[in-house]
């Protein structure tokens, strides 16, 4: 062991190195998902498409409900509710299909997400077992542990939530866009511009948020490492009456973590209100020239579809997904 000479000050912590390797490797993770679960993902996309079409159909129906069914009836002496009943029946079927597809792709994504996590953890561990001992000497154990706990959890969030959400959003946007084009071309133009605005704003915040989340994870790793070291040496601390010093050092690190966590959460928290309210500002103007229909339900429904679903997984004591917390 004496031959493994001290290496001098370390320049990079364990998780920094691994994170650096990974941040460039988000692509690799995605490639891994596609490689392992290509067919499943194809099925997911199909189900998402069905769900999106059902959603759009449902939305369009609500729009027609008032104009095509209710308003004409108000003008008749003896209104016939027959056509309305038939329409409600058919739209009910569409809703059912939509709900089922929603369940199906969520369930499939669970498999994809957990399967990928299993593979990543397994590869991480196998890789770690093969690392030279020097790696373990030069990295704090708490910091290495942090990769398994904090970092893998973050990655799990990405695979389990952000990734399906991404597919979902792309499908929704595409189908909504098409149906909007069919409805009214000039208004679609305005919407596109407004949406671009929202995307720009949320993109800015998301980038900031991402940066701060990275910072938070790094500080979390540091605090983890420090705590691990001090708890292990707690008895030595007592023997040398080193408590005050150890508290002072901890306070500095804890404060860094607090401020990083504060900033990361702030960004995540304000992302949703901004997107929602920009949407609110956008639609009354759009609505004004359209008939008295129920289009506004669409953004609400979309939100309902996507955001609550995220929570349960996190609810169970795991780091909270940003969008969910923001709501």
């Amino acid at each position: 062991m004496a031959d493994s000479r001290p290496q001098g000050r370390r320049h990079m912590t364990a998780s920094e190195a691994m994170r650096a390797a990974r941040s460039g490797n988000l692509k690799r993770v995605i490639a891994m998902i596609f490689g392992d679960y290509g067919l499943t993902l194809a099925a997911v996309v199909v189900f998402i498409l069905i769900a999106a079409v059902a959603d759009v159909k449902g939305t369009l129906f609500l729009q027609r409900l008032i104009d095509d069914y209710i308003l004409p009836m108000t003008k008749e002496e003896h209104p016939d509710f027959g056509p309305l009943a038939a329409a409600l029946r058919s739209i009910g079927t569409v809703y059912l299909i939509g709900a089922f597809s929603g369940f199906a792709y969520n369930r499939l994504m669970v498999k994809v997400g957990q399967g990928t996590m299993r593979r990543i953890r397994s590869e991480l561990f196998s890789h770690m077992e093969r690392l030279p001992i020097r790696y373990f000497d030069t990295h704090s154990h708490g910091d290495i542990m942090s990769i398994y706990t904090n970092d893998t959890d973050t990655l799990r969030q990405f695979i389990g939530q952000s990734f399906p959400q991404l597919i979902n959003s792309v499908c929704s946007i595409a189908s909504v866009f098409v149906s909007m084009c069919i409805l009214n071309l000039p208004l679609t133009g305005i919407s596109v511009i407004m949406t671009a605005g929202i995307l720009f704003a949320s993109g800015k915040i998301a980038a900031q948020s991402g940066k701060y989340f990275g910072l938070q994870q790094r500080h979390l790793g540091k605090v983890n490492g420090y705590i691990e070291e001090m708890m292990t040496g707690q008895k030595v601390i007592k023997v040398f009456s080193h408590e005050e010093k150890s508290i002072a050092d901890f306070r500095a690190k804890n404060e860094e973590l607090r401020s990083a966590s504060d900033r990361a959460n702030t960004m995540a928290n304000i992302l949703m209100p901004i997107v929602v309210q920009l949407g609110n500002v956008d639609w009354p103007r759009r609505r004004v020239r359209r008939t008295a229909s129920a289009k506004p339900i669409a953004p609400a429904a979309t939100r309902a579809l996507y955001s609550p679903r995220e929570c349960p997984a996190t609810a169970m004591g795991l780091p909270t997904p940003r969008a969910c917390r923001a709501r």
Binding site: L62, A301, P312
Partner: peptide, 30 residues
């Protein structure tokens, strides 16, 4: 997977309730 499947069942339940409401409101509202 088992635990998350539980969570997944939330989704259709929620959607079907929402849609049932919408249809009921449409009908009675009309």
């Amino acid at each position: 997977v088992r635990a998350e499947t539980f969570v997944c069942t939330n989704f259709p339940i929620m959607m079907i309730t929402v849609y049932t409401c919408i249809i009921a409101i449409s009908w009675n509202g009309a």
